[in-house]
């Protein structure tokens, strides 16, 4: 399977284009491309340091957030009901090829 392309807007507003490999979660793709994603919990939906915003159209194509993910996000800086996700919970999928994500502010 070929890689996805991902466009990332960082916290300073700069745009990065990166390759997202099929065996990675979105968090891993962000982290391994040196974007400032701390991912303190290693991808277990425990910390919310990998919080990103997605466009509503993209967000709507994804499955429901787990209770843990939602509880962490609701208290996060800049939470968007129809846009916030923990990127560690987003597996590679064709539907996410070419999407743009924005790193949420650190709080």
């Amino acid at each position: 399977m070929s890689n996805n392309e991902l466009t990332v807007i960082d916290r300073e507003g700069s745009t990065h284009r990166l390759e997202w490999e099929p065996d990675q979660t979105m968090m891993e793709a962000l982290r391994d491309n040196d974007l400032p994603v701390l991912a303190s919990c290693g991808g277990t939906a425990s910390c919310a340091t990998c919080h990103v915003f997605l466009d509503k159209e993209v967000f709507d194509t994804l499955g429901e957030r787990s209770e843990d993910e939602l509880e962490l996000l609701v208290e996060a800086e800049g939470y968007q009901e129809c846009g916030s996700r923990l990127s560690c919970q987003l597996d590679f999928s064709r539907e996410l090829n070419g999407v743009t994500v924005t790193l949420a502010p650190e709080d």
């Binding site: 609701v74 208290e75 709080d107």
Partner: peptide, 11 residues
Amino acid sequence: AGLADFRPARK
């Protein structure tokens, strides 16, 4: 079994 207090607590 619930993380609602976790982030506010750390702050």
